[in-house]
């Protein structure tokens, strides 16, 4: 499934890298601890988190993730958005909680790394 289809199905706002939504999504991962993400998330994953610090972009870029869903309307630093545009890492936002987003992704057939 392409990232764009997820954006449409979950009604996510695209906060950064709007031109990079054609990526195929290989699976999903959810955590707010970036060290855990670095250790476990896989290339092509969509990552669900309420962390909005600029470091999320570096981690997603390092792991070649498909995109990041930032939940609960967590306020995005302008720096985070600028870096995400530069690195072509889509940032998708929603007022909904991580739990809800993950259950919606699962209903679309997106699977975890384990």
């Amino acid at each position: 499934m392409k990232l764009r289809e997820i954006v449409d199905a979950l009604d996510l706002q695209v906060a950064a890298a709007a031109d990079d939504l054609e990526r195929e999504v290989s699976g999903g991962y959810a955590s707010d601890l970036l060290s855990c993400v670095m250790a476990r998330a896989q290339a092509g994953n969509v990552w669900v988190t309420l962390q909005s610090h600029p470091n999320i972009v570096a981690v997603a870029s390092l792991l070649n993730l498909a995109g990041i869903v930032v939940t609960e309307g967590s306020p995005l630093d302008p720096n985070t958005i600028a870096k995400a545009n530069e690195e072509h890492i889509p940032i998708l936002t929603t007022p909904r909680t991580t739990f809800t987003v993950v259950s919606q992704l699962a209903a679309l057939g997106i699977r975890g790394v384990d």
């Binding site: 601890l33 970036l34 060290s35 993400v37 670095m38 610090h53 470091n55 570096a58 981690v59």
Partner: peptide, 9 residues
């Protein structure tokens, strides 16, 4: 800082 954010910005 390291566990939550992975590295020092």
């Amino acid at each position: 800082l390291i566990v939550n954010l992975g590295f020092v910005p």
